[in-house]
Design a protein around this nucleic acid. Structure first.
Lengths: 372, 372
DNA sequence: CTGAAAGCGCTTACAG
DNA sequence: CTGAAAGCGCTTACAG
């Protein structure tokens, strides 16, 4: 298959089954009826069929009927890809979604929000997961553009999106979610991450904690950095010295979160409370506290809500974000751009909400030198 | 917009923004470079460009270089929709996913499994949620077909998929997941639902329970019916009379599950254990048990695992299914069909696993006339 | 109101 | 090995 290597340079993610095999795919494939077939059966021209299918009101009523009858008879279904190729607007009624992981509950809910807003317009989303790999992100973006999506909703890993400027100039609508663009002037929908982390931390400070551990994601991720900022900010606001040893970052997933929590709590001068800065990390932290049997002794506030958060004991206090609302807002922004909205790039901030369920309301324990 | 009504009849879900507006979309749109542009810059013919892009090895090396240089210079990106229109295989490298709800953790994980298997082939998934609405299912299927997806992975709501026979004849690969086709002979990947429910129920019987409540989904859903069968089956196998009053079905979501659990436990002759036959229902059951403070008294086994299931107290015993594996298997089956595999329709059963965490190992309490 | 014709951006026989 | 030409299934000026 040496001949595939070169093509791959241009279109890496698109290489599919060897063409020579694909031809003989499914034994006796039946041709789909085309507008031409419909025209023949209805006894009108191809142009008239197209007009009827597209709801052009200038067609005489009896011809409209004839065409519809032929459509039903043949089981004709329009080929949107061909239609799109020739249309003036060149809209494919498809948008691309680039997320860290579609299986993460946050992004799954975001997807749903986008889907709902898009469905109202007859638009369908294609989604892909980057796993925080910038190469994968770029491949996905290219793969989506090759399919001529009308827009991209992207939770960026990569800082440099200059590889998308040409697509934008060609009309691609671009909306960032969860994380802002870094070198681009584009619409974005997100939460106040620093504010959320600050609220989480201040909630613990209000309960009397002075030694609050921080469990954060990889700092290459913007939200992770912002949340750390909010955590530090809360300390500064309350005149509490920031203690580097209470901070664990670069955590990828629940196991890493669990291990980091265990490490922190086993340290010589341990925290009396924890801020878990991402949903999977929170899961890990909860697990560790329970394994140590200290879930009623060490306070915990998570960022981003979880299913069953109200069912653990104590209930899990979180700063919740409204993922479906983020998705809906992003989709609506994207469509407004597609409709020609020329206003400057918008930054929409979806409010978060502190949900007190118990774990965040535990006062500091007297053990350890950290308590006052 | 009266003229849109008729078009809607043929392509309901595709009607997009009024074409007349869409034209003036984004001020000065720059045309994307085409193969023609590349050909001009490289000083070769359009056909040669196409050959190079497609990795045809018969092109002379220096021309290959020239074309690649022109591609880089112009920032050319292939239009896959146009390519697909003309190719012999007519493969779009896109597949459609029709799920109940992409935000449900089970389907989100299934999506991820499909995505991974598809990515290896350069194929991208488009997904839509039906919310168990057969009309929406049909709209989604049509919308996907209009975009000329190569195949459909479908968790069916509708029993009658005869509206897809024409598409199948035209080469559409069809794989069912989670639920089998009812009137169709097609590939399917699922779990042994009756077996899972039987295992859950027998686990409770082994712990000594004789009055086991059942919380099930809407019985229009195949998995819901199967799980009820398994529950009853377990009773029959152990010579326990089936008590209709212990069964609550048609539950849609966690709130309904919570309410039904509360109702059952408050009945004159209540169960000593519960089988929660779906993930959201399990969440509701856990919630109710905790609110009543009876989580250490009433046993509970859920079907399908949940995040934090090990963190609730007692830990949640479940019969877990491997959603990513279901997704991967479905995608691989679909691709094998696309590659020409002609074998009879397959039924792949992905094993489930009982995970004991505490809630399912609670013995029957002595309260109530149901205990022996 | 309608049809013949051009053309969207590609691939693919067909010659050479 | 290469190019001119036909054509995939549509939409859209252009005439009438």
């Amino acid at each position: 298959m040496g001949e595939h290597k070169r093509g791959a340079r241009v279109e890496k993610t698109i290489s599919q089954a060897p063409p020579e095999e694909a031809v003989q795919t499914s034994g006796s494939r039946r041709r789909r009826p085309t507008m031409e077939d419909v025209a023949r059966v209805a006894g009108v021209s191809l142009a008239t069929v197209s007009r009827v299918i597209n709801g052009d009101s200038r067609v005489r009523a009896d011809r409209v009927t004839r065409v519809h009858e032929a459509v039903d008879l043949l089981g004709y279904r329009r080929d949107l890809t061909a239609s799109n190729l020739r249309r003036a607007d060149r809209l494919s009624a498809t948008i691309g979604l680039i997320f860290e992981d579609v299986a993460n509950p946050f992004f799954a809910a975001l997807y749903r929000g986008v889907e709902e807003a898009a469905a109202a317009r007859g638009v369908l989303p294609i989604a892909g997961s980057t796993d925080e790999d910038p190469v994968r992100e770029r491949e996905l973006a290219h793969a989506f553009c090759a399919r001529r999506v009308d827009g991209l909703v992207i939770a960026p890993v990569e800082r440099d999106h200059s590889y998308l400027v040409r697509e934008r100039e060609a009309g691609l609508a671009l909306v960032y979610v969860d994380r802002p663009p870094e070198l681009f002037d584009a619409d974005v929908v997100l939460i106040d991450n620093a504010g959320a982390a600050r609220a989480a931390t201040e909630h613990l400070i209000a309960a009397g904690h002075r030694r609050i551990g921080f469990l954060g994601e990889r700092q290459r991720i913007w939200t992770a950095r912002e949340r750390l900022v909010g955590y530090r900010d809360a300390h500064a606001r309350h005149g509490i010295a920031f203690d580097q040893t209470l901070m664990r970052v670069e955590l990828g997933g629940s196991d890493a979160g669990a291990a980091a929590a265990r490490e922190l709590l086993g340290s010589p001068d341990p925290p009396t409370a924890l801020v878990a800065a991402q949903n999977l990390i929170t899961i890990g932290a909860v697990r560790t506290l329970q394994q140590l049997g200290r879930q009623r002794e060490i306070a915990l506030v998570g960022i981003d809500d979880l299913v069953l958060a109200d069912a653990v004991a104590p209930g899990l206090t979180v700063v919740a974000q409204d993922a479906p609302a983020i998705g809906r807002a992003a989709a609506e922004l994207l469509f407004s751009r597609l409709d020609g909205e020329q206003a400057p790039a918008q930054r929409i901030v979806i409010p978060t909400r502190l949900i007190k369920r118990g774990s965040g309301e535990i006062p500091p324990s007297d053990t350890g030198p950290g308590s006052r």
